[in-house]
Design a protein around this nucleic acid. Structure first.
Lengths: 234, 234
DNA sequence: ATATTAAATGTACTTTTTACACTTATTTTT
DNA sequence: AAAAATAAGTGTAAAAAGTACATTTAATAT
């Protein structure tokens, strides 16, 4: 097979920024790195890309190895390529961000990897440029959530409106008026009211809702405009 | 220097989707490829990444070689990594999209590269996955233009409101009411009215405007919501 | 002088967004 | 059994934004 001559070849990796939501705050799934350099330090979940594997496939492989989950929301974030980002050898990293229902994960935990959830506001130092990746992923998540009903990916199948509001408030680091929030959410027609209530979080109990998946798929690109103050969003 | 063992290394390239606007329609800058395979066919402008160069730098180098321009609007689009996207040897491509003022370019044309502007609607077939890249770049441009005043990057320093409207109409492939369009544009306070008029395109002449660069820099992330019909966007 | 061309401009109506407070269902306490 | 506590659920009026729509104006060409 002919080859391009005289060009340098580089290592290429995929790293995943995995977000979860426990009902109260946004969390990040991290692992203790298993190889040198920086062995034992906290890191995003990643892997070198294999010969016959594209990025999506690589990201899904990593995600599946780590959490056992399939069909997770996954989106390419950015390619990071500073020559010295890995001190051992130049490595290109294509970063993906993933949104998962933390409860599903907990059931399928794979403990071989020493993975752990950290609240996004008190995550440990990360290796290489991983903190920069997380920063960018947070911005992207906010940006996207302002227009698309993406945050449902972080919630369990059944959830309440107050939980959803909590999530939005966490992401945008603000508070919404609950009457206006509820009206806006209902106007999307994405929610299907259930008969039962969540009694864990209040005496009165809050009705559960499910996502209308048909509408969700059809309207994903419709705009919600859930921005508290546009100036705060990247 | 220690190295990661047993990992395959890959070629990494940067490709640029370069948009220009000639006052009437959106155009794409393409080159005739100078090396095998597919030599002589039309292609995006690209290059393998060099050892000590990051992606931004590579993209700027390419852009500068080709157009002589510096300080061009440049944004990472996506990393493309299908194993067989280049039939000779697996090559990762990090694609950037650039917005340039076509008039500035024409002055600095570098003819060594056989570059040519094509109307986006009648561009030739492109090599590899470059058409897919262009598609994605068009979507991204629309998406971004719906919220950010990004299209000014395509215009010369002095431009008229009808020209600007033309550009928006081209990008979104629709028509706007000119009273409403003008009001919306003026409401951004990004335009500074000039004393002189453009007499080329009408008998009456249309006032020139300049971009208020301070405000532009400060308000870039504010939202314009220039969407004709949200459903049509990505 | 008249016709032609594209630019510039205003207003009324509809929709969306915002601000704001009380009632309800249920559990806990006395 | 009554009272207190808690968070859920709901409506309305005012402001802002968006939409639809037609005439006048400046300059050139005939």
């Amino acid at each position: 097979m002919p080859k391009y001559q005289k060009q340098t070849r580089f290592l290429v990796a995929v790293d995943c920024i995995i977000f979860g939501f426990d009902g109260t705050e946004l969390k990040l799934l991290l692992v203790q790195r298993g190889l040198e350099p920086e062995k034992g330090k906290w890191s995003l979940i990643g892997s070198f890309i294999r010969e016959e594997e594209d990025f999506e496939k690589g990201a899904n492989r990593i995600l599946n190895d780590m959490t056992g989950l399939e069909g997770v929301y996954l989106e390419q974030l950015h390619a990071f390529g500073k020559p010295d980002r890995d001190p051992i050898e130049r490595t290109i990293s294509v970063a993906y961000f993933a949104l998962i229902d933390i409860h599903q994960y907990e059931r399928q935990l794979n403990d071989d990897f020493h993975a752990e959830w950290f609240p996004i506001k008190s995550a440990p130092r990360l290796i290489f440029d991983h903190e920069q990746m997380v920063e960018m992923a947070k911005k992207r998540l906010r940006y996207k959530a302002a227009f698309h009903p993406i945050l449902f990916e972080l919630l369990p199948e059944k959830f309440t409106v107050p939980q959803l509001q909590n999530l939005y408030e966490g992401i945008f680091d603000t508070v919404f008026d609950k009457r206006n929030f509820s009206r806006k959410i209902q106007s999307t027609k994405l929610l299907i009211k259930q008969k039962d209530k969540d009694k864990e979080n209040s005496k009165k109990g809050a009705y559960y809702y499910k996502l209308d998946k048909r509408r969700y798929a059809a309207n994903f690109h419709a705009f919600l405009n859930f921005i508290p103050n546009p100036d705060n969003i990247k």
